[in-house]
């Protein structure tokens, strides 16, 4: 293997398949074609496959790009203009679905109570999940976890003082505290290979249903817009506050299913790390950030509520499919035995 300055291009994924006119238009533009003027964004389902995939592809230009696609298209005015319309539709739909408010403490409280018999993917997997379901879940979560902590890193220059320092300390931990092999994204990749899944970035985008893509899009949107920095912190807080007990359930699921050390290890790491992150997020980030700033508090509450909503939609989708004995994926889980 040779190392060249263009090595990162090796990890750029292939373009996904279109799911409707909006995503087809974006994909055609990335292949060098013009973007049509007449695109019906407002008539599309804001949570649907087509709009969400179109948005996802726009955002990926800011992360790793795509193989064979000009990196400069990241700042193409026509694509950015369309992205803006897609975002406006998604954001309006989210705002319409959540109650809003300005009481951050009231949003945090229920997240710190364990609802023993509540429905949820991790609870299902712990009690009676099957290995194929566990593998599907990991494949779906890979859209985020192979770039774990990256969407939240966008917010760093938009924060100040104590909140900034505390958020960076959590991100530092997510990025392996200075050790590449311990980055959470790397631990996730190790788990994927152990489970016989491909750890290639973007390998499962084509089989990811809209609720999975929407969750990642919300992080990217909130990270890329300074105006949504409060929402980003709210989203981050929900993940860090709920991850530790959820990860404990997945450790038990993995143990029960006879999974290997990388799989158990990824979730075990999150039980302990996120028990710490919860405290840092509450006391180090949220408290100073919203102190004396009601507008910021409202933004954080919106981010928390939107994250909860999208998580519930994802969970409902996955559990409904599994309870019906179906796959939660858009198509069959691709087998990647040939992947090097």
């Amino acid at each position: 293997m040779t190392t060249t300055p263009t090595a990162p291009a090796l990890s750029a994924p292939a373009l996904p398949l279109a799911r409707g006119p909006l995503s087809a238009a974006v994909l055609a533009a990335l292949r060098g074609g013009p973007l049509p003027d007449e695109l019906d964004v407002e008539g599309a389902d804001p949570f649907g496959d087509d709009l969400q995939l179109a948005l996802y592809v726009c955002y990926e230009l800011h992360y790793r790009g795509f193989a064979g696609v000009d990196d400069d298209l990241e700042w193409d005015p026509a694509l950015l203009g369309l992205r803006r319309r897609l975002e406006a539709a998604f954001l309006a739909a989210l705002r319409a679905e959540v109650p809003g408010g300005g009481d951050v403490a009231a949003e945090i409280e229920p997240l710190l109570v364990e609802h023993v018999d509540a429905p949820g993917v991790s609870r299902h997997l712990r009690r009676r999940g099957e290995l194929w379901q566990f593998r599907e879940y990991i494949a779906l979560r890979s859209l985020y976890h192979l770039k774990e902590a990256d969407p939240q890193a966008w917010v760093i220059p938009r924060l100040e003082g104590e909140a900034k320092a505390a958020l960076v300390s959590v991100e530092h931990d997510e990025y392996g505290a200075g050790r590449g092999e311990r980055m959470h994204a790397q631990l996730f990749a190790d788990m994927m290979r152990e489970l016989g899944l491909s750890d290639r970035y973007g390998a499962y985008v084509d089989v990811a249903p809209a609720p999975v893509i929407a969750e990642v899009n919300f992080m990217s949107m909130s990270g890329l817009h300074r105006a949504l920095r409060g929402a980003l912190v709210g989203q981050f807080a929900v993940v860090e506050l709920t991850s530790s007990p959820g990860s404990d359930r997945l450790v038990r699921a993995a143990e029960r299913l006879g999974c290997g050390p990388a799989t158990i290890g990824f979730y075990a790491e999150h039980v302990e790390a996120d028990a710490v992150h919860e405290q840092v997020v509450r006391h180090g980030i949220l408290a100073p950030l919203v102190a004396g700033d009601p507008a910021m508090a409202e933004a954080v509450v919106f981010g928390m509520q939107a994250a909860n909503l999208l998580d519930a939609r994802l969970s409902d989708h996955v559990l409904a499919a599994w309870h019906a004995g179906r796959s939660a994926l858009v198509g069959p889980l691709p087998e990647h035995a040939a992947d090097a």
């Binding site: 023993v116 300390s169 505290a177 007990p245 404990d248 028990a275 710490v276 919860e278």
Partner: peptide
């Protein structure tokens, strides 16, 4: 870790480290 959470409630499955088992359960 840069910061470690030590369990003081005694309920952690990963004692001496906190695993959020101190949370109220309903």
């Amino acid at each position: 870790r840069p910061v470690t959470a030590l369990c003081v409630c005694g309920n952690s499955r990963r004692y001496p480290f906190c695993d959020t088992s101190h949370r109220r359960r309903v």
